[in-house]
């Protein structure tokens, strides 16, 4: 399937348009500027899935005093698996759903199951928390390189990023 085979359709929610109107209703004069790049990096995996180590990256924060108060990059072990993550500051749909089941947005259980059945090679011993930011500079120049370094330390082959 080519990328163009999955177009935006009428039923899909126009989040950018809604968010612009939502910010304007709060008195903001400048529209939010979403990240946009003229080109997208792409490389093919060097190993088959069955031999690859996969890491999960989330935009939620650890559900700890530090995670709730200090938005920065965190890395935590996948064992023991966290029972909750701090998501309150993020813009998920609080009217329609909840984030009490972390497997609905942080796929540690799924990756462990898929490693057990041999679909992937292994799961990274740590997962990473990436703070959402107004500052694209912080993400590009500080947080993303830091997470890349940590993934390389853990000999990760593939990464799944799940933004909330």
């Amino acid at each position: 399937m080519a990328a163009s085979d999955t177009p935006f359709i009428a039923n899909d929610i126009p989040y950018m348009e809604r968010t612009r109107k939502f910010y304007r209703a709060q008195g903001y004069e400048s529209d939010y500027v979403w990240a946009h790049f003229p080109t997208t990096p792409f490389i093919q995996p060097s190993k088959p899935l069955q031999e690859s180590r996969v890491v999960a990256i989330t935009t939620s924060m650890p559900d700890t005093e530090l995670g709730r108060s200090n938005r920065t990059v965190y890395s935590n072990p996948i064992k023991p698996q966290p029972q909750s993550m701090y998501t309150e500051e993020l813009s998920w749909d609080k009217k329609a759903t909840h984030t009490n089941d972390i497997a609905s947005f942080l796929p540690l259980e799924q990756l462990k199951a898929l490693a057990t059945e041999g679909f992937i090679g292994s799961v990274s011993p740590r997962f990473h928390c990436l703070p959402t930011e107004f500052s694209q500079k912080n993400t590009l120049e500080k947080d993303a390189p830091e997470i890349l370094t940590r993934c390389q330390e853990d000999k990760v082959d593939l990464a799944i990023l799940v933004p909330l």
């Binding site: 899909d12 790049f37 799940v162 909330l164």
Partner: peptide
Amino acid sequence: DIVKHCGVARYCYSDFPLGNPCGKP
């Protein structure tokens, strides 16, 4: 719309309310 505006290498799209892209709780 936001993910495509940014551009990513590979994208698995869940047409769900924001908060549970990996599946219903």
